[in-house]
Design a protein around this nucleic acid. Structure first.
Lengths: 145, 145
DNA sequence: TATTTTTTGTTTCATTTGAAACTAAATGTC
DNA sequence: GACATTTAGTTTCAAATGAAACAAAAAATA
């Protein structure tokens, strides 16, 4: 029995380790926190989606998402549009200012990732991607304990 | 450029997904939260260590660790001992009650992990373990951005 | 040895978080 | 159509969090 090697625990430690440095960097350089960065990334790749969709994609709490969206709209990084089919929801997308921000932040983020990934072999990188996809497929099917 | 596939982001989502179900379960069944569970796991495998060491191993904040240790001592799951060489620090270990708790929780945790891992092939499991170790080695060397 | 600096851990306090309650709209049922 | 139920998102409020300041001991330096 190997509890140090307990997978949820190991992944949490690893994820924290990887996020720590980069999170401070975003805050210092661009004044955006981790929640904001995550929502921005999602909207960068998925324009015109609702808070609900963001929740699904990010696994973040809906309250946190609600507040993050509010702050990003206040900072003028996002545009809000009324949803055509549902008056409760709003569609969000990056504003011009938001896209400008992302053009500044993304190279930084990618450089960090590259630094990390270049220490893996081609095989290892492929395996990593494969494993992440597989886990997501497994976990999206059954979320029960 | 693939930001959805940005590694820190993917790992965070995955880690949250994996932890979600199991965290609720610990709380409901045993009245311990994620911080407490993590500290307990660490002390299960590393008896007689200080808060500092726990911080290194878990990547958790020192304030959080301080409070978690306090709560676990209050709940009588841990014994505190004065550190032989450093009067500022204390050594912690599971109490009898703590070990009893762990004997109840661990099978549950391992069953959850097993459910997850049995959906991977032998190769995939090995690759997973290899990648986690490798990342930890990489990240422990250089923690600069 | 005295003094400064660093390290370990705690406390304070302002911020972040998320469960629960809520609003308002959409969907389902009669 | 009227009423009940579900869904999307927000607000409230109590708890968790962590940065900064702190205390106390250890280590480094003079």
């Amino acid at each position: 029995m190997e509890l140090n090697d307990f997978l949820p625990y190991q992944l949490s430690v690893l994820s924290l380790k990887i996020s720590k440095g980069i999170a401070e960097h975003y805050q210092d350089q661009f004044g955006i926190n981790i929640s904001q960065w995550r929502v921005l990334v999602i909207l960068y790749k998925n324009p015109d989606i609702t808070a609900k969709k963001i929740a699904q994609l990010s696994q973040m709490d809906k309250v946190r998402i609600s507040r993050t969206l509010k702050s990003l709209v206040q900072k003028k990084y996002l545009n809000q549009a009324t949803h055509p089919l549902d008056a409760r929801a709003k569609n969000y997308e990056l504003s011009e200012r938001g896209r400008y921000l992302m053009r500044a932040v993304i190279p930084d983020a990618l450089r960090y990732e590259e630094e990390l990934l270049k220490k893996l072999s081609d095989d290892e990188r492929q395996q990593l991607q494969h494993l992440i996809s597989k886990f997501n497929r497994i976990l999206d099917r059954e979320d029960s304990f």
